[in-house]
Deep mutational scan, measured.
Amino acid sequence: MSDQEAKPSTEDLGDKKEGEYIKLKVIGQDSSEIHFKVKMTTHLKKLKESYCQRQGVPMNSLRFLFEGQRIADNHTPKELGMEEEDVIEVYQEQTGGHSTV
């Protein structure tokens, strides 16, 4: 019986991991920090939209990076291997420009 009891508790931990929340720091170019608590399985588009709304800027005017890689709207913290207190960097999107060649 103890084996049966242990097995469901392991499964519960697996389920808990799926719905687990982590805190992420979003740091802007001006070094301002906003902290977000997100589920591991939530699409990061929600975090990006919330950040842009707080900053009063359109979402397409900023780019969000985690460990140097651009974050897509459909990425989740779990897919990117994010952990508690990880940092997302935000930069002004640069458009235009010309070749110097």
Rank of each mutant, 00 (worst) to 15 (best):
Lys23Asn: 09
Pro58His: 01
Asp73Gln: 06
Gln29Asp: 00
Tyr21Gly: 07
Gln53Ile: 00
Cys52His: 05
Ser61Glu: 04
Ala72Ser: 14
Ala6Tyr: 06
Glu85Trp: 15
Pro8Phe: 12
Phe36Asn: 02
Glu49Phe: 07
Gln53Lys: 08
Tyr51Gly: 01
Ala6Arg: 11
Lys46Gln: 10
Lys16Ala: 12
Gln53Tyr: 15
Leu13Lys: 13
His35Tyr: 12
Lys17Gly: 08
Ser61Asp: 06
Glu79His: 00
Gln94His: 08
Asn60Lys: 06
Asp86Lys: 04
Cys52Tyr: 02
Phe36Arg: 04
Glu84Trp: 14
Glu84His: 04
Met59Ala: 09
Ser9Asn: 15
Leu24Ile: 07
Glu20Val: 11
Leu80Pro: 01
Lys48Ile: 05
Leu44Arg: 03
Phe36Val: 04
Ser50Ala: 13
Lys7Val: 05
Glu11Asp: 10
Ser32Pro: 04
Leu65Lys: 00
Asp3Ala: 09
Thr76Val: 01
Val26Thr: 08
Val57Ser: 05
Ala72Tyr: 12
Ile22Cys: 15
Glu33Met: 05
Tyr91Thr: 05
Gly68Thr: 02
Thr10Ala: 12
Lys23Asp: 06
Asp86Glu: 10
Gln55Met: 15
Leu24Lys: 06
Glu11Gly: 15
Tyr91Gly: 05
Glu49Tyr: 06
Gly97Glu: 01
Asp30Tyr: 05
Val38Ser: 01
Tyr21Thr: 14
Arg63Glu: 07
Glu11Met: 14
Met59Val: 14
Ala6Lys: 08
Val87Asp: 07
Ile88Val: 14
Val57Tyr: 14
Ile34Phe: 15
Lys78Ala: 10
Ile71Phe: 00
Gly56Gln: 14
Val26Gln: 05
Glu83Asn: 10
Glu5Pro: 14
Leu62Met: 06
Glu18Lys: 13
Glu89Met: 09
Met40Ile: 13
Glu89Tyr: 14
Tyr91His: 11
Asn74Thr: 11
Glu33Asn: 06
Val57Leu: 11
Leu13Pro: 09
Asp86Trp: 01
Val90Asn: 02
Lys25Leu: 00
Thr41Lys: 05
Ala6Met: 15
Cys52Lys: 00
Glu83Gln: 06
Glu18Phe: 10
Glu85Ala: 12
Ile71Asp: 04
Leu80Ile: 01
Ala72Arg: 12
Lys46Tyr: 11
Lys37Val: 01
Ser2Lys: 11
Glu18Val: 10
Val38Thr: 12
Pro77Ser: 03
Asn74Leu: 13
Lys45Asn: 08
Ser32Phe: 06
Gln53Val: 09
Gly96Arg: 02
Gly97Ala: 04
Lys16Phe: 11
Pro58Leu: 09
Leu13Asp: 13
Glu33His: 02
Met82Leu: 05
Tyr21Ser: 11
Asp12Ser: 12
Lys45Ser: 10
Gln4Thr: 14
Ile27Glu: 00
Gln4Ser: 14
Asp3Ser: 11
Gln94Asn: 05
Asp73Leu: 02
Gln29Tyr: 07
Asp12Pro: 15
Leu24Pro: 02
Lys17Asp: 10
Thr10Met: 11
Thr10Lys: 13
Phe36Asp: 04
His35Leu: 09
Ile88Thr: 03
Thr95Cys: 09
Ala72Pro: 07
Lys16Arg: 11
Ile71Lys: 07
Gly97Tyr: 03
Ile22Tyr: 00
Glu18Pro: 10
Glu49Gln: 07
Asn60Gly: 14
Arg63Ser: 07
Glu83Ser: 14
Thr76Trp: 04
Val26Trp: 02
Val57Asn: 06
Asp30Leu: 06
Asp15Asn: 13
Ser2Gly: 12
Met59Ser: 07
Lys48Ala: 02
Val57Gln: 06
Ser2Val: 14
Glu5Tyr: 13
Ser9Asp: 14
Gly28Glu: 05
Arg63Phe: 06
Ser9Thr: 12
Ser9Gly: 10
Ser61Ile: 05
Ser2Phe: 12
Val38Lys: 05
His35Gln: 10
Thr95Phe: 05
Pro8Tyr: 12
His75Gly: 02
Val87Tyr: 13
Glu84Val: 09
Ser31Thr: 08
Gly96Glu: 02
Glu20Ile: 12
Glu18Gln: 12
Lys39Glu: 05
